[in-house]
Each structure stands twice: as C-alpha cells, then as structure tokens.
Design a protein around this nucleic acid. Structure first.
Lengths: 141, 141
DNA sequence: TTCTTAAAGGAGAATCAGTCTTAATTGAGA
DNA sequence: TCTCAATTAAGACTGATTCTCCTTTAAGAA
C-alpha cells in the first residue's frame, strides 16, 4: 500500500496523462478508502483533505482514471456506482443484506474458468475478461 | 414465450400479490422487450400500449416484482438500471463497446462452479448464488 | 528560467432517472 | 354485493451526475 501510494504520480504519468494534484489526491483516496467506495465516499474524503477540489472535478477525474485503466467501476444491483482501485484479476463478494462488496481473490478459480473458456468459444462474442459476482451474506451482518 | 405470457396472472397470484392490470402489463412488457430493457424502455412500451399507467406506477411495480423474484435487476458499468425477466440460472455477456447485455445459459459452467464451491467455503461469507459477468464484444458491433 | 498552449480544473446551473406524497381507486375475500 | 387494505395516478421533489464556460496549470520548447 505504501508503495502503491508513493507510485501514484508515476502511474498517472505512464498513461500519458498530466500529473495534477487533483488526480493524485483522488487516486490516493480510492486506495485509502479501499472497500469499493462510492463517488460520495470519495467526494467526502477529498473535501475533507483537499477542500478546494470541486465535485465536478472528482467525477471528471474518475472518468479519466477509468478510461486509462487506473480504476475500475463496479456494478451493483441497487446502489450508485462504486470504484475499485485493485487491478489484479479478482472476483466480488456482494452482501445482499448490507450492500458491502469485498474482493475475492482465488487463483484456482481463475485457472478453472480460464481453462474452461479456452476450449469453450461463445458464438458471436469475443471474450475479454470475466468477473464472478458471488451473492450472499457476510456473517458479521 | 406464449406460455410465459399467458401465465402472468398466475405467477403474480402465486406470490400472494393482487393481480392488477398494471402488474400484468408491466411483466408482459419485460417479457416482450426481452433484451434487458431499461426502465425507460419499459415506460415507453407501457405508455404506448396502456397510456393511463403512470411512470411512478411502473417503478413501484418493478420494485414489487423484484422483491417477489419475478424479475431481476441488472446493471452495466455505465448505464441506468436494466431489468431481466429470465429467472433460470444464467450468466451475462456484456458488450464493452455498445453496452448490450445478453443472457448466457451454460449448464456445464454452472455445474463446474457449483461443484467448485461445494468444497470451497469462503470464510465469513454465506454464499447464496453467483453470476458470471463475461465482458467482451459482440461480433455484430 | 520563462514562454506557450493544450489540457485540466472550478463554480454552479442543468439534467433526469428514480422516489415520495397524497388522494382516489380497486381487487378479492367475506 | 360490500368492505377495506392494497394499489394506483399525478406530479412535485431529490440527488447523483453532467454540462458549460471561464480560469488556471503542467510540461515541453526556447
């Protein structure tokens, strides 16, 4: 995490984007907030730490980060959009009671799925990647 | 499909809900519109065929149908909410270019996943079901 | 270091999907 | 047929996100 945050400027630059304090602050917020924050979570955090960054800027920067694969959007069935700063291939545990989302990393599962789709072509569709959405409840709920 | 539509009243009644013309019309619209319509698609269709049904009613009925598992909500990374009248266990093909969603039914895949999770427990989490989001592009795009 | 300029950000108005409120209507059991 | 809790109609309201337009700035060039 330490590393992830100190490299933020480099990551942005690598994508050919201007390195601005706003972009650094917003990407840092996503890493720090960690658990799939909503835009509102990010905006609150930003306004607390960088009161001069406008709300519209947060949305615009989020779009830029997504376009450049520095952040992913996560779909939920009820809620507003969520954002995910974890880029390695992972799946999601969705709590159907409290709407919490957690990452679920499982190499064995990835291998099984990759292997399955290596042989199984879907007609008329070119697959790029996949995410398993696992619905259930966290015991702590 | 014929059957699916003629049974609509029965399906609603089975859930202990009042069978109203509005509910029948809206569930029928979802079946007929088929490919994961948005609320707007549904509202347009309803207003064309049943001009007296209010927009607010459509949203309320959709919520009722979802609560009673007659319809599921689906969402894409960008878009507004979508609705899905297919209840059998299926996965989704998402087009990253045109935002189209198609159902992907694959018994073999279900079996592989079910079997995998029969043995693999996720700590602190009680799994209910899962959906694989397969991202890519349709050749027709 | 300063200059130049395309890219980015600030402020706040505008949009619009979805929700809420209240009064009127109605499905379905008695 | 009667009754009433459940449902619907109408449209005002909300709030997340986008848009517009003007100002500022990052970063390569001189």
């Amino acid at each position: 995490m330490k590393n992830k945050i100190s490299d933020i400027g480099i990551r942005i630059k690598e994508k050919g984007l201007k390195v601005t304090p706003q972009r650094i602050a917003i990407l840092e917020a996503i890493y720090k907030l960690d658990n799939h924050p909503t835009a509102e979570n990010i905006i609150d955090f930003i306004h607390k730490n960088h009161p001069s960054i406008a709300t519209g800027t947060v949305y615009k920067v989020l779009d830029t980060l997504i376009e450049n694969n520095l952040v992913k959007r996560v779909r939920t069935e009820r809620d507003v959009m969520r954002y995910d700063g974890v880029l390695e291939h992972h799946h999601h545990l969705y709590c159907i009671e409290c709407d919490l989302i957690e990452d679920y990393v499982d190499e064995e599962l990835n291998d099984i799925l990759m292997n399955y789709f290596k042989n199984k072509k879907i007609e008329g569709f070119e697959m790029k990647d996949f995410v398993l959405q696992i619905n259930g409840t966290f015991n702590k709920c």
